[in-house]
């Protein structure tokens, strides 16, 4: 039952952990320069070819870590929001938080702020996510329904998209427009430990805050009155959830760019392996998100294309068929 571990299939966590480690390792070994396990071990020990060592520790390792972190955050965020909004269509973008994070980054790229300081792009993305919170929190204080929250989220997302379109429209050069587009498509290419430093605390705080709300999310299975009569403090839950998504997803989007579909698909894929209660879905969705995104990030390196394939493009291409297959099989049980 709740939080007792009995809400999951018995082998679910060991299997997810194993898969997470496997894709993490595979992600480190994959790339234009093939690096075997022995080279990896010597690099970690501080021995071996310094170039291999540099590739491994400065390029591959941060990329692998970021794949796991961003995926975990998007998966948990999707699961928590589906539980909170009691809507199987929910994902982090639904409250307008990730589109606003994208707008923040686009503004930084538009004004060439990255040249001033490389941290400004991710910083503005996090600020964008937090800016999306202001109207949401105002509504939340007034005790508006979840439907109002979704509608406000859609409005915020539309505004963010309009802002992004404006930036593309007024882009000073085709190169600037290209750079914005490229960021929007999402990627973990050429990331460093600086990006891990941004994403790791955001994602850790975000996931911890969401997992702490599992019980309230379970109570919400019975609707708002049902949940409150079971002792859930819904205004507190809403506040924590909004902050967690803004911090966690804001931090994730800041380093990865726009990556859609993971937050929507992952909870659906995991639900059949749990007792289908929102709390039982949170951690499996973190692992599954990490696995899915890392697998997609490996795939973008393997698929031979003239221009490098972007991660956000592939997650949608991978996610949609899996999702539709899943819907056809599971259509009655959300």
């Amino acid at each position: 039952m709740n939080a007792s571990g009995r809400g999951h299939a018995p082998l679910l966590f060991p299997l997810l952990l194993l898969l997470t480690l496997a894709v993490g390792l595979l992600s480190i070994t994959m790339g234009p320069a093939p690096i075997g396990i022995s080279a990896m071990v010597s690099a970690i020990e501080g021995k071996g070819d310094p170039i291999v060592r540099a590739i491994l520790l400065e390029l591959r390792l941060p990329r692998a870590i970021l794949g796991l972190l961003v995926g975990a955050m998007l998966g948990t965020g999707g699961a928590a929001l589906q539980g909170y909004l009691r809507n199987p269509l929910a994902e982090p973008a639904v409250l307008g938080i990730s589109p606003m994070a994208a707008l923040g980054a686009v503004i930084a790229i538009y004004f060439n702020l990255a040249d001033a300081h490389p941290w400004l792009v991710p910083l503005l993305a996090v600020l964008g996510a937090i800016a999306a919170l202001l109207p949401l929190l105002r509504l939340s204080r007034k005790g508006e329904s979840t439907l109002t929250l979704i509608l406000a989220g859609m409005a915020i997302a539309s505004l963010a998209e309009a802002g992004i379109s404006l930036a593309l429209n007024l882009a000073p050069s085709p190169f600037a427009a290209m750079e914005i587009m490229s960021w929007l498509l999402g990627s973990l290419e050429d990331r460093s430990f600086k990006d891990v430093l941004i994403a790791l605390p955001c994602v850790a705080i975000g996931i911890a805050m969401l997992v702490g709300q599992g019980r309230a999310l379970d109570a919400l299975s019975l609707g708002e009155d049902g949940a409150r009569s079971l002792g859930a403090d819904l205004s507190r839950t809403r506040m924590i959830l909004l902050f967690a998504i803004a911090i966690g997803v804001g931090g994730a989007v800041a380093v990865s760019g726009g990556i859609g579909f993971v937050g929507l698909v992952v909870p659906h894929l995991m639900r059949p392996f749990t007792d289908r209660s929102p709390s039982a879905l949170l951690l499996p969705s973190a692992f599954a998100g990490a696995i899915l995104l890392s697998a997609a990030d490996i795939a973008v390196r393997v698929v031979p294309t003239a221009t490098p394939l972007k991660l956000g493009v592939l997650t949608a291409f991978l996610g949609v068929p899996i999702f539709i297959h899943h819907l056809l099989r599971e259509r009655r049980l959300w």
């Binding site: 539980g83 109570a219 919400l220 299975s221 609707g223």
Partner: peptide, 15 residues
């Protein structure tokens, strides 16, 4: 009483 997720009877009573 509404129920938003397909929980088992035992899980539901456990709420």
């Amino acid at each position: 009483q509404e129920l938003h997720w397909p929980l088992s009877v035992e899980r539901l009573v456990g709420l």
